[in-house]
Structures are given as C-alpha cells and as structure tokens.
Amino acid sequence: MRPAVASSADLDVGAAPALALVAGEVSGDLLAARLMAGLAPRLPGVRYSGIGGPRMLEQGLVSDVPMDTLTVRGLLPVLLRYRELKGIQDRLRDRLLAERPAAFIGADYPGFNLGLEQQLRAAGIPTVHFVGPQIWAWRRARIKKIQRAVSHMLVIFPFEEAIYREAGVPVTYIGHPLAETIPLQPDVAGARRALGIPVDATVVTVMPGSRMAEIKYLAEPFVRAVRLLAARDASLRFIAPMAGERQKAYFRQVVAQAGLQDVPLTLVDGASHDCIAAADAVLAASGTATLEVALFKKPMAIAYKVLPAEWMIIRHMGYLPWIGLPNILAREFLVPEFLQHAATPEALADALWFQLTEENNRARLRERFTEMHHGLLRDSARASADAVLRVIGR
C-alpha cells in the first residue's frame, strides 16, 4: 500500500538533522530514494520533507503534496498549470525558509527545482541538484541560472562532469543508479515466468510513457504498429507496462477512441523491468525508459511526439542530433529514433521488425549496451551521500 501523504505539521521539528527533497517524476523518485537510503545510516535520526513519490515515502519522506501533482510534460502544459505549480513552489519555499533544513536536494525536475533552489541558496540554505539538466542537449543558457542556484551538482553521465566544472559549478559524477539496479545479465526466463509468458515466445514490449501527455500522443501509433506487426507474425506476444491505474485507464481510452480494442496487446500493472527483461525488442517513448532498455541489452525503437505547436518551438532548440539516451551516450544512432510526424505506425513497425529479425544487429547492440552498462556502474547511493555530507559539513 502506498504510504499516505503527510503535512509538514507532522514533522518533529525539534529533531535533527533535516533535509528537504523534491522529485516531480518517477525517475526522480527513484534517484532521490537511493540517495536517501545511502544517507540514512550515516545521519541517524535524519528527517526528510518536501515532495516525492512512493519510493521516497518508503524512505521516510513527509510529502507536502502527492508527487503526481507536479508531473507534467511539455512547455505548453506547464504554461497552462503555471499558477498552480508556482503556488506549490511558493508555499514550499516559505516553509523551508522558516524551518531551514541542512540542505535542499532537487531530484531532476529542473523547471521547478532550479527556481526553488535559487531562492533557498540566496537565503543561505545549501542546495544540491541531483541529475544535471540536459544543457548539453538544449537550453545551454540555463547554466547561468545553475551557477546561481546550485551549491553542488550530482551528475549521472560521465561526460557531464567536465561541462559543469568548466562552468565553475562544483560537481560529482556518481554513476547512474539504474546501472546498479539492472543486472548485467538479465534473467529473461525468470521475467517471462513472472509475467506468465512462454519462455520460447517472441515478445515485443510497448512503452508509451508514464506521463499522460506521452500516452496521449503515442498510444495510438504504438498500438497501430502492434497491429501491423501482429499481421506479419501472428505468434508474436505484445505487452505494455502501465505506470499506474490512471495511466492504464487513459491508455485504454485513447485506444478505444481509435477503435483499436481488438489489437492483441496485454497491459501489465507496473513490472516495467520484468516487461523489458522479457522482451526480444522494445518500442519506447523517449526518456529514461530508453536507458533502461539499453541496460537490459534489448534492441529498440524510440519515438517522441508532442503538441504540434510545441514541436514548432522545441525543434529549433536542440544542440544534438539524437534524443534517445542510448544514442546520446554512444554519440551515434545505435537505435532508430522517430520524431513527431515521422513516428508513424508503419515506420515503427518496420523498425521493430528489423530489431526482431536482424541477428547481426542484435549482437552488436548487446555488445555496445554492455559496454555502456559498465561505464555507468558506480555505487551511486554512497557517492551521492558522500557529496551531500560534504555540502552540509558532516
């Protein structure tokens, strides 16, 4: 059962030490929870408050609002909810300025966290930002705000360390927590047994994202691609992990509106890692899931779609030719990417078919993804905890 969200009044403000954390999405919740687990034995009696998800709550976070309240993707959706999100930020800022935690730790979610960090740091509260914003991909001018907002940056990709060091931002490369939680050699048979899938089946895993905006734009082309693949090979098994009941209901609604209820796609509650481990190939929304797929050594195709007006804005803001994390880390198109209008069912189905059937490509990807896994593998909980302890002088 998910722990209840509590208010700051539930905290014993007389105890010490206290740390504040904010995560706005599932990936940040995972990152922050690992940091909290690394800190707890080294800071007896530590109290955590802020905003976070179920993993952070399990580590003892007292969350002012449910993390889902902050979860929003894209420039225009953020603008539509600006007053609501700003109100949450202001209330949290005022509480933290009154309570003065030993440090504030922002777990990703830079649009919200950097603004909060800037205000807290100006008031003398040390700030740590966990996962450097992707200034190497777009919005490079954001480094100036980071210089003002962040006392110490924790980065999860090795090439990021030099970027922040050159900008004068104290930085520590801590490795990527997913490289620790995902085994170097996934248990494919075990994952299939857990999901009730025959061990000898050919499995395609479909991952349309955890955010509603992703599902809105990707559910229909993804399911149509499944229909095309099923027509090529009726023995294929298709599964799609759903991040929660809201996402599953919304996915079904999009599929029903498109008249695609008959497509042989099984929705799975959570269990995303089992679904990836069980797969022979994966169709994934751009984001952290693509790195998870790479760490599981699976061939994939990546898709990205947003509101057309938003696409007109952001397509001119990127600095790199890649959007998928595996391709960014490899500095080449290891796996195909389909952006906006290119993310058609036909193109996605063709790409998945290639990933399923070309053995030389599959072997090459396993080798490259294994190298990538080793490069990201560190004791991230300890490394991030060490950095936070240095910041607070412990």
Rank of each mutant, 00 (worst) to 15 (best):
residue 4 A to F: 05
residue 10 D to G: 13
residue 11 L to T: 09
residue 14 G to T: 15
residue 17 P to Y: 03
residue 21 L to Y: 11
residue 26 V to N: 06
residue 26 V to A: 14
residue 27 S to T: 14
residue 32 A to Y: 03
residue 34 R to Y: 05
residue 39 L to S: 10
residue 40 A to D: 11
residue 40 A to I: 06
residue 46 V to G: 05
residue 46 V to K: 06
residue 46 V to F: 04
residue 46 V to T: 07
residue 46 V to A: 05
residue 51 I to C: 11
residue 60 G to S: 01
residue 60 G to C: 00
residue 60 G to I: 05
residue 66 P to H: 09
residue 73 R to T: 15
residue 74 G to M: 07
residue 88 I to P: 04
residue 92 L to N: 02
residue 94 D to S: 03
residue 100 R to V: 10
residue 104 F to A: 10
residue 108 D to T: 06
residue 110 P to M: 04
residue 110 P to T: 10
residue 111 G to Q: 06
residue 117 E to N: 03
residue 119 Q to Y: 02
residue 123 A to Q: 14
residue 128 V to K: 07
residue 128 V to P: 10
residue 136 W to S: 04
residue 139 R to D: 08
residue 145 K to V: 10
residue 151 S to F: 12
residue 153 M to F: 02
residue 154 L to Q: 11
residue 155 V to I: 11
residue 156 I to L: 15
residue 157 F to W: 14
residue 158 P to K: 12
residue 159 F to W: 09
residue 160 E to V: 05
residue 164 Y to S: 03
residue 165 R to M: 00
residue 165 R to A: 12
residue 175 G to D: 04
residue 180 E to R: 15
residue 182 I to K: 07
residue 183 P to W: 10
residue 190 G to S: 08
residue 192 R to A: 04
residue 192 R to D: 04
residue 202 T to I: 14
residue 205 T to D: 06
residue 205 T to A: 14
residue 207 M to S: 09
residue 209 G to I: 12
residue 216 K to C: 03
residue 223 V to N: 13
residue 225 A to Y: 11
residue 231 A to R: 14
residue 233 D to V: 13
residue 237 R to T: 13
residue 239 I to T: 15
residue 243 A to T: 14
residue 244 G to C: 07
residue 247 Q to D: 15
residue 248 K to I: 10
residue 249 A to D: 15
residue 249 A to G: 06
residue 250 Y to T: 12
residue 250 Y to A: 04
residue 252 R to T: 03
residue 254 V to S: 01
residue 254 V to A: 10
residue 259 G to A: 02
residue 262 D to I: 01
residue 266 T to R: 15
residue 277 A to P: 01
residue 282 V to E: 09
residue 283 L to S: 04
residue 286 S to G: 02
residue 288 T to F: 06
residue 292 E to V: 07
residue 293 V to Y: 02
residue 294 A to K: 07
residue 298 K to G: 05
residue 301 A to H: 01
residue 307 L to V: 13
residue 310 E to D: 01
residue 311 W to G: 04
residue 312 M to D: 09
residue 312 M to N: 11
residue 314 I to V: 15
residue 317 M to T: 15
residue 320 L to A: 14
residue 321 P to C: 02
residue 323 I to Q: 06
residue 325 L to N: 01
residue 327 N to W: 08
residue 328 I to L: 12
residue 330 A to E: 07
residue 334 L to F: 12
residue 335 V to D: 03
residue 336 P to G: 03
residue 336 P to K: 11
residue 344 T to L: 08
residue 345 P to M: 06
residue 349 A to V: 06
residue 359 E to S: 14
residue 364 R to L: 09
residue 365 L to Q: 12
residue 368 R to G: 00
residue 369 F to H: 10
residue 373 H to N: 02
residue 373 H to F: 09
residue 388 V to T: 03
residue 392 I to S: 10
residue 393 G to R: 09
residue 393 G to C: 02
residue 394 R to A: 15
